[in-house]
Protein backbone atom coordinates (compact mmCIF):
# COMPACT_ATOMS: atom_id res chain seq x y z
CA UNK A 1 0.00 0.00 0.00
CA UNK A 2 1.15 3.48 -0.73
CA UNK A 3 -0.57 6.50 0.70
CA UNK A 4 -0.93 9.18 -1.91
CA UNK A 5 0.22 12.53 -0.61
CA UNK A 6 -2.95 14.42 -1.44
CA UNK A 7 -5.04 11.94 0.52
CA UNK A 8 -3.18 12.53 3.72
CA UNK A 9 -4.31 15.13 6.15
CA UNK A 10 -1.85 15.94 8.87
CA UNK A 11 -3.84 17.54 11.64
CA UNK A 12 -1.78 16.71 14.68
CA UNK A 13 -0.30 19.77 16.30
CA UNK A 14 3.47 19.81 16.44
CA UNK A 15 4.09 17.76 13.30
CA UNK A 16 6.02 20.07 11.03
CA UNK A 17 5.98 17.72 8.04
CA UNK A 18 6.15 14.13 6.90
CA UNK A 19 8.21 13.05 3.93
CA UNK A 20 8.30 9.67 2.22
CA UNK A 21 10.95 8.90 -0.38
CA UNK A 22 10.82 5.68 -2.29
CA UNK A 23 11.82 4.03 -5.50
CA UNK A 24 10.85 0.89 -7.35
CA UNK A 25 13.83 -0.53 -9.17
CA UNK A 26 11.49 -2.07 -11.73
CA UNK A 27 8.12 -0.37 -12.20
CA UNK A 28 5.26 -2.37 -10.79
CA UNK A 29 7.56 -5.00 -9.33
CA UNK A 30 8.80 -3.14 -6.25
CA UNK A 31 8.78 -4.97 -2.98
CA UNK A 32 9.12 -2.03 -0.59
CA UNK A 33 6.34 0.32 0.47
CA UNK A 34 5.42 2.83 3.14
CA UNK A 35 2.35 4.02 4.93
CA UNK A 36 1.71 6.78 7.45
CA UNK A 37 -1.10 8.66 9.04
CA UNK A 38 -1.55 11.53 11.47
CA UNK A 39 -5.21 12.05 12.26
CA UNK A 40 -6.73 14.64 14.55
CA UNK A 41 -5.70 12.75 17.69
CA UNK A 42 -2.29 13.09 19.34
CA UNK A 43 -1.15 9.78 17.87
CA UNK A 44 0.29 9.21 14.43
CA UNK A 45 2.64 6.75 12.74
CA UNK A 46 5.12 6.33 9.94
CA UNK A 47 6.05 2.89 8.62
CA UNK A 48 8.03 1.09 5.95
CA UNK A 49 7.86 -2.52 4.79
CA UNK A 50 10.29 -4.51 2.67
CA UNK A 51 9.01 -7.67 1.03
CA UNK A 52 11.90 -10.14 1.09
CA UNK A 53 12.66 -10.85 -2.58
CA UNK A 54 14.87 -13.90 -2.08
CA UNK A 55 12.64 -15.71 0.41
CA UNK A 56 9.45 -14.50 -1.24
CA UNK A 57 10.29 -14.95 -4.91
CA UNK A 58 7.40 -17.34 -5.55
CA UNK A 59 4.78 -15.81 -7.84
CA UNK A 60 1.08 -16.26 -7.14
CA UNK A 61 -1.12 -16.63 -10.25
CA UNK A 62 -4.22 -15.82 -8.19
CA UNK A 63 -2.66 -12.45 -7.32
CA UNK A 64 -1.84 -11.39 -10.89
CA UNK A 65 1.44 -13.25 -10.68
CA UNK A 66 2.79 -10.88 -8.04
CA UNK A 67 5.60 -12.21 -5.88
CA UNK A 68 4.97 -13.22 -2.29
CA UNK A 69 7.36 -10.43 -1.26
CA UNK A 70 5.32 -7.71 -2.97
CA UNK A 71 2.00 -9.00 -1.67
CA UNK A 72 3.41 -9.25 1.86
CA UNK A 73 4.78 -5.72 2.18
CA UNK A 74 1.54 -4.20 0.95
CA UNK A 75 -0.56 -6.44 3.18
CA UNK A 76 1.52 -5.49 6.24
CA UNK A 77 1.09 -1.79 5.41
CA UNK A 78 -2.70 -2.17 5.12
CA UNK A 79 -2.92 -4.12 8.39
CA UNK A 80 -0.84 -1.49 10.21
CA UNK A 81 -3.00 1.29 8.83
CA UNK A 82 -6.19 -0.50 9.91
CA UNK A 83 -4.70 -1.13 13.35
CA UNK A 84 -3.99 2.58 13.65
CA UNK A 85 -7.39 3.55 12.24
CA UNK A 86 -9.10 1.43 14.89
CA UNK A 87 -7.06 3.29 17.54
CA UNK A 88 -5.46 0.10 18.82
CA UNK A 89 -1.99 1.52 19.54
CA UNK A 90 -2.09 1.85 23.33
CA UNK A 91 1.58 2.40 24.33
CA UNK A 92 1.12 -0.01 27.25
CA UNK A 93 3.56 -2.70 26.16
CA UNK A 94 0.88 -4.77 24.41
CA UNK A 95 1.06 -3.17 20.95
CA UNK A 96 3.72 -5.53 19.61
CA UNK A 97 1.77 -8.64 20.69
CA UNK A 98 -1.55 -7.33 19.42
CA UNK A 99 -0.17 -6.21 16.08
CA UNK A 100 1.70 -9.50 15.76
CA UNK A 101 -1.53 -11.52 16.32
CA UNK A 102 -3.38 -9.35 13.86
CA UNK A 103 -0.65 -9.79 11.22
CA UNK A 104 -0.42 -13.54 11.81
CA UNK A 105 -4.14 -14.05 11.38
CA UNK A 106 -4.36 -11.82 8.31
CA UNK A 107 -1.29 -13.33 6.63
CA UNK A 108 -2.68 -16.84 7.00
CA UNK A 109 -5.97 -15.70 5.46
CA UNK A 110 -4.13 -14.06 2.56
CA UNK A 111 -2.02 -17.17 2.02
CA UNK A 112 -5.16 -19.34 1.81
CA UNK A 113 -6.63 -16.90 -0.69
CA UNK A 114 -3.63 -16.73 -3.02
CA UNK A 115 -2.31 -20.31 -2.78
CA UNK A 116 -3.32 -22.52 -5.65
CA UNK A 117 -2.92 -26.15 -6.64
CA UNK A 118 -0.11 -26.83 -9.03
CA UNK A 119 2.10 -24.00 -7.80
CA UNK A 120 5.79 -24.84 -7.52
CA UNK A 121 6.52 -26.53 -4.20
CA UNK A 122 9.28 -24.75 -2.33
CA UNK A 123 10.82 -25.16 1.10
CA UNK A 124 13.91 -24.65 3.25
CA UNK A 125 14.73 -21.82 5.60
CA UNK A 126 15.52 -19.50 2.65
CA UNK A 127 11.90 -19.77 1.55
CA UNK A 128 8.89 -18.23 3.29
CA UNK A 129 5.32 -17.61 2.18
CA UNK A 130 4.62 -13.85 2.02
CA UNK A 131 7.74 -12.59 3.83
CA UNK A 132 8.23 -8.96 4.74
CA UNK A 133 10.14 -6.83 7.19
CA UNK A 134 8.54 -3.90 9.00
CA UNK A 135 9.70 -0.75 10.79
CA UNK A 136 6.91 1.27 12.36
CA UNK A 137 7.24 4.35 14.57
CA UNK A 138 4.09 5.27 16.48
CA UNK A 139 4.26 8.72 18.00
CA UNK A 140 2.23 10.14 20.87
CA UNK A 141 2.72 13.86 20.59
CA UNK A 142 0.76 15.38 23.45
CA UNK A 143 3.39 17.55 25.08
CA UNK A 144 5.02 20.74 23.86
CA UNK A 145 8.59 19.74 24.56
CA UNK A 146 8.64 15.92 24.57
CA UNK A 147 6.97 13.00 22.85
CA UNK A 148 6.63 9.25 23.21
CA UNK A 149 7.82 7.16 20.29
CA UNK A 150 7.14 3.45 20.11
CA UNK A 151 9.25 1.60 17.54
CA UNK A 152 7.87 -1.73 16.31
CA UNK A 153 9.86 -3.84 13.90
CA UNK A 154 10.63 -7.25 12.40
CA UNK A 155 13.65 -8.11 10.26
CA UNK A 156 16.24 -5.58 9.11
CA UNK A 157 14.16 -2.50 8.37
CA UNK A 158 15.13 0.18 10.86
CA UNK A 159 13.73 2.92 13.05
CA UNK A 160 15.88 5.95 13.94
CA UNK A 161 15.69 9.40 15.43
CA UNK A 162 17.78 12.33 14.26
CA UNK A 163 18.49 15.24 16.59
CA UNK A 164 21.31 17.72 17.23
CA UNK A 165 23.60 14.84 18.27
CA UNK A 166 23.06 13.03 14.99
CA UNK A 167 21.41 9.87 13.80
CA UNK A 168 20.56 7.17 16.34
CA UNK A 169 19.44 3.67 15.37
CA UNK A 170 16.82 2.50 17.84
CA UNK A 171 15.82 -0.85 16.36
CA UNK A 172 18.06 -3.91 16.43
CA UNK A 173 18.16 -5.97 13.24
CA UNK A 174 16.85 -9.52 13.60
CA UNK A 175 19.93 -11.42 12.41
CA UNK A 176 21.21 -14.95 12.93
CA UNK A 177 24.72 -13.67 13.62
CA UNK A 178 25.87 -10.83 15.82
CA UNK A 179 26.48 -7.88 13.50
CA UNK A 180 26.48 -4.13 14.03
CA UNK A 181 25.42 -1.60 11.39
CA UNK A 182 28.97 -1.42 10.00
CA UNK A 183 29.86 -5.13 9.96
CA UNK A 184 26.51 -6.02 8.47
CA UNK A 185 27.28 -3.87 5.41
CA UNK A 186 30.02 -6.37 4.70
CA UNK A 187 28.67 -9.69 5.96
CA UNK A 188 25.03 -9.49 4.83
CA UNK A 189 23.89 -11.27 7.98
CA UNK A 190 20.99 -13.67 7.48
CA UNK A 191 17.71 -12.52 8.97
CA UNK A 192 16.39 -14.56 11.87
CA UNK A 193 12.87 -13.13 11.95
CA UNK A 194 10.47 -11.68 9.40
CA UNK A 195 6.69 -11.39 9.17
CA UNK A 196 5.40 -14.29 7.06
CA UNK A 197 2.48 -16.68 6.61
CA UNK A 198 4.04 -20.03 7.50
CA UNK A 199 4.10 -19.89 11.28
CA UNK A 200 5.64 -17.95 14.11
CA UNK A 201 7.34 -14.59 13.91
CA UNK A 202 7.94 -11.77 16.34
CA UNK A 203 7.31 -8.04 16.29
CA UNK A 204 9.86 -6.31 18.52
CA UNK A 205 9.25 -3.06 20.33
CA UNK A 206 11.13 -0.26 22.03
CA UNK A 207 9.51 2.84 23.49
CA UNK A 208 11.43 6.06 24.05
CA UNK A 209 10.58 9.47 25.43
CA UNK A 210 12.26 11.96 23.15
CA UNK A 211 12.83 15.70 23.31
CA UNK A 212 11.71 17.92 20.45
CA UNK A 213 12.77 19.20 18.02
CA UNK A 214 13.49 15.89 16.36
CA UNK A 215 13.03 13.85 13.21
CA UNK A 216 11.71 10.28 13.47
CA UNK A 217 12.76 8.03 10.60
CA UNK A 218 11.85 4.55 9.38
CA UNK A 219 13.75 3.00 6.49
CA UNK A 220 14.08 -0.23 4.52
CA UNK A 221 17.56 -1.61 3.93
CA UNK A 222 17.60 -0.44 0.31
CA UNK A 223 18.19 3.11 1.60
CA UNK A 224 21.04 2.45 4.06
CA UNK A 225 22.60 -0.82 2.98
CA UNK A 226 24.56 0.35 -0.06
CA UNK A 227 26.98 2.75 1.62
CA UNK A 228 30.40 1.83 2.89
CA UNK A 229 29.53 3.04 6.40
CA UNK A 230 26.52 4.22 8.45
CA UNK A 231 28.01 7.75 8.62
CA UNK A 232 27.29 8.16 4.92
CA UNK A 233 23.60 7.44 5.46
CA UNK A 234 23.32 10.26 8.01
CA UNK A 235 25.29 12.49 5.67
CA UNK A 236 22.91 11.90 2.78
CA UNK A 237 19.92 12.60 5.05
CA UNK A 238 21.38 15.89 6.27
CA UNK A 239 22.95 17.09 3.03
CA UNK A 240 19.68 16.66 1.13
CA UNK A 241 17.72 18.25 3.97
CA UNK A 242 19.96 21.33 3.85
CA UNK A 243 19.97 21.54 0.05
CA UNK A 244 16.16 21.66 -0.08
CA UNK A 245 14.02 24.66 0.76
CA UNK A 246 10.86 22.78 1.69
CA UNK A 247 9.90 19.35 3.01
CA UNK A 248 8.51 18.44 -0.42
CA UNK A 249 11.85 19.31 -2.05
CA UNK A 250 13.75 17.36 0.62
CA UNK A 251 11.66 14.31 -0.27
CA UNK A 252 12.60 14.67 -3.93
CA UNK A 253 16.30 15.38 -3.24
CA UNK A 254 16.57 12.43 -0.87
CA UNK A 255 15.06 10.10 -3.41
CA UNK A 256 17.35 11.44 -6.15
CA UNK A 257 20.41 11.07 -3.93
CA UNK A 258 19.75 7.52 -2.75
CA UNK A 259 18.61 6.11 -6.11
CA UNK A 260 22.01 6.02 -7.85
CA UNK A 261 23.69 4.51 -4.81
CA UNK A 262 21.28 1.69 -4.05
CA UNK A 263 20.71 -1.40 -6.12
CA UNK A 264 17.47 -2.16 -4.41
CA UNK A 265 13.99 -0.82 -3.96
CA UNK A 266 13.80 1.47 -0.97
CA UNK A 267 11.24 3.27 1.16
CA UNK A 268 12.04 5.84 3.80
CA UNK A 269 9.66 7.95 5.90
CA UNK A 270 10.60 10.88 8.10
CA UNK A 271 8.35 12.89 10.42
CA UNK A 272 9.57 16.29 11.63
CA UNK A 273 8.46 17.44 15.08
CA UNK A 274 8.87 20.65 17.02
CA UNK A 275 10.10 22.95 14.27
CA UNK A 276 8.33 26.21 13.53
CA UNK A 277 9.07 25.88 9.81
CA UNK A 278 11.28 23.98 7.37
CA UNK A 279 13.75 26.85 7.56
CA UNK A 280 13.87 26.42 11.33
CA UNK A 281 14.60 22.72 10.81
CA UNK A 282 17.49 23.51 8.44
CA UNK A 283 18.95 25.94 10.93
CA UNK A 284 18.74 23.32 13.68
CA UNK A 285 20.71 20.66 11.75
CA UNK A 286 23.33 22.94 10.15
CA UNK A 287 25.84 22.59 12.96
CA UNK A 288 25.48 18.82 13.11
CA UNK A 289 26.00 18.58 9.36
CA UNK A 290 29.20 20.63 9.58
CA UNK A 291 30.49 18.47 12.43
CA UNK A 292 29.66 15.24 10.57
CA UNK A 293 31.34 16.50 7.42
CA UNK A 294 34.48 17.65 9.17
CA UNK A 295 34.91 14.75 11.57
CA UNK A 296 33.89 11.89 9.26
CA UNK A 297 32.96 12.63 5.67
CA UNK A 298 36.06 14.64 4.77
CA UNK A 299 38.09 11.62 5.84
CA UNK A 300 36.15 9.12 3.74
CA UNK A 301 37.41 9.00 0.16
CA UNK A 302 37.93 6.38 -2.52
CA UNK A 303 41.30 5.65 -0.93
CA UNK A 304 40.12 5.22 2.64
CA UNK A 305 41.17 1.81 3.87
CA UNK A 306 38.95 -0.63 5.73
CA UNK A 307 41.05 -0.09 8.84
CA UNK A 308 40.50 3.67 8.69
CA UNK A 309 36.78 3.24 8.08
CA UNK A 310 36.57 0.88 11.02
CA UNK A 311 38.32 3.40 13.21
CA UNK A 312 35.89 6.17 12.15
CA UNK A 313 32.98 3.83 12.82
CA UNK A 314 34.40 3.09 16.27
CA UNK A 315 34.04 6.76 17.12
CA UNK A 316 30.73 7.34 15.31
CA UNK A 317 28.93 4.38 16.81
CA UNK A 318 29.10 5.85 20.31
CA UNK A 319 26.44 8.37 19.34
CA UNK A 320 24.78 6.11 16.74
CA UNK A 321 23.83 3.66 19.48
CA UNK A 322 23.32 6.25 22.24
CA UNK A 323 19.75 5.25 23.02
Amino acid sequence: MKNEKNEIKIKTKGVTAVICAEREKLDGLGEDCYSYSFDSTDVGYIAVFDGCGGMGARKYPKANNKTGARIASRAAACITDEFYGEKLFRFDGSDCRNLQSRMKEAFQRIKSAVDSDGAAMMGGDLFKSLPTTAAIAVIKNNDNSRMVCEYLWAGDSRGYFLDADGLCQVTKDDLKTDEDAFSNLRSDGRMSNVIHADGDFRINSETLILDKPIIIITSTDGAFDYFSSPMEFEHILLSTLLEADSAEKWEIRLSEAISPVTGDDFAICAALFGFTSYGDCKKYYKERFEYLTKKYMNRITEDTTEKELLSLWGSYKLSYYRR
Binding site: A120, M121, M122, G123, G124, D125, L126, F127, K176, R190
Partner: peptide
Protein backbone atom coordinates in the same frame (compact mmCIF):
# COMPACT_ATOMS: atom_id res chain seq x y z
CA UNK B 1 18.50 -31.39 4.37
CA UNK B 2 15.63 -28.99 3.76
CA UNK B 3 14.25 -29.59 7.23
CA UNK B 4 17.46 -29.52 9.23
CA UNK B 5 20.09 -27.34 7.50
CA UNK B 6 20.36 -23.55 7.47
CA UNK B 7 20.60 -21.46 4.30
CA UNK B 8 18.71 -23.87 2.07
CA UNK B 9 16.06 -23.33 -0.58
CA UNK B 10 14.40 -26.43 -2.03
CA UNK B 11 12.56 -26.32 -5.33
CA UNK B 12 10.72 -29.64 -5.11
Amino acid sequence: IRNSWDNVIHYM
